[in-house]
Design a protein around this nucleic acid. Structure first.
Lengths: 140, 140
DNA sequence: CAGTATTATGATACGGATTATCAGTAACAA
DNA sequence: TTGTTACTGATAATCCGTATCATAATACTG
C-alpha cells in the first residue's frame, strides 16, 4: 500500500470508526484531499469536486478536523487552510507564497508551555502556533 | 500623563508619524480603543462608535495593525480580536471565556525559532502563537 | 431480501464579517 | 483662502461558512 493510499484509508476509516456512514460524497472528498499536495482551502476542494455540494464539503472537512485527521491552520491574514495530520500533536511551517506545509515537532514549545503555565493566571486549555516561511522553491 | 493617555497618544502619533491625516473619526477610534479593557472585536468598536462609519472603523483598525500599534490575534475558532501592542514583540494568552488578554514574552520561543530556522527549508518570515486559557475569573 | 428508521445530501437561503464603490467632505499646505 | 488630496460614510458587494429542509442513500432488522 502506498503512502497516498494509506492516507485515504486513514481518512475513510477514521470516519468509519466514528460510526459515520461511508457515502460516495465522503469518499470523493477523502480522495480529493489525498490529491492535494499541500495545504488547501475549503474552496479548493469545492472547485475540484463540482459534483459534491458545498455544504457537504464543509461538513466533511469539519468531521475530519474534529476527529483529528485534518489540521486547520491559519495563514498570516487569518484565512484558514487545512492539511493532513500525519503525526499526533505538531506544528506547521507554511510557505506564505505557495502554501506548502511542513510539519515539525519541537519539545521546546511544550516545555515553554509548561513553564508558562506556572507564571500565568488560569489554566492553559490550548494553543496555536504557525511559522510562516518563504520556501526555497518560491525564494531560491 | 497617565498610562491611558500615553496609549492614546501613541495611537494618534503613530498615525501622525506615518503621514496620515488626524481626522475626528480617527481620534474617536483611538479613544474608543483606549477605553477597551481587553481584547476587542471590530464590531465592539462599531457599537461604541455609532457616529463613525463601519468602513472607517475597519480602515483605522487596519492602519493601526499595519503600523504595529495594534495586535491582531485569533480566537480558537479563528475569529479575530485586537489588542494594544504595549511592548515590542510578544505573545498573548487569551481567555476563551471572557476574552481577557495578557501579554507574555518568552525567549524560549525565539530560541526555538532560531534553532528551527537551521532545520527547515526556506526563510522564516513570521510566526503566530496564541495560548488559550480559562482565566481565574472564569474558572476559579 | 424487503421494509424501515436514520443519517446524509445538496440546492438554496441566510448570516456575519470585511471590503469595494463613489460622491461628498474635511484636512492641510501654499 | 484656496486647491489638492486624502478621508469619510452610506451602501452594495463579497466571501466564507452555516441553517434549512425536502429528497435520497445507507444501514439495520426481521
Amino acid at each position: 500500500m502506498t503512502t497516498t493510499e494509506q492516507m485515504r484509508h486513514d481518512l475513510i476509516t477514521t470516519l468509519e470508526d466514528r460510526g459515520f456512514r461511508l457515502t460516495k460524497p465522503r469518499r470523493d472528498v477523502a480522495t480529493a484531499i489525498e490529491t492535494q499536495a499541500d495545504a488547501f482551502t475549503a474552496e479548493d476542494l469545492c472547485e475540484s469536486l463540482p459534483a459534491v455540494g458545498r455544504a457537504t464539503v464543509y461538513r466533511t472537512i469539519k468531521l475530519l478536523v474534529d476527529t483529528g485527521a485534518l489540521c486547520k491552520l491559519a495563514m498570516p491574514d487569518g484565512a484558514p487552510k487545512y492539511s493532513l495530520a500525519r503525526v499526533g500533536h505538531h506544528h506547521h511551517t507554511v510557505c506564505v507564497r505557495c502554501g506548502k506545509v511542513s510539519d515539525f515537532r519541537d519539545t521546546t514549545v511544550e516545555r515553554m508551555l509548561r513553564s508558562l503555565a506556572k507564571e500565568i493566571d488560569g489554566q492553559i486549555v490550548g494553543h496555536r502556533m504557525e511559522v510562516y516561511v518563504d520556501c526555497s522553491d518560491c525564494v531560491p
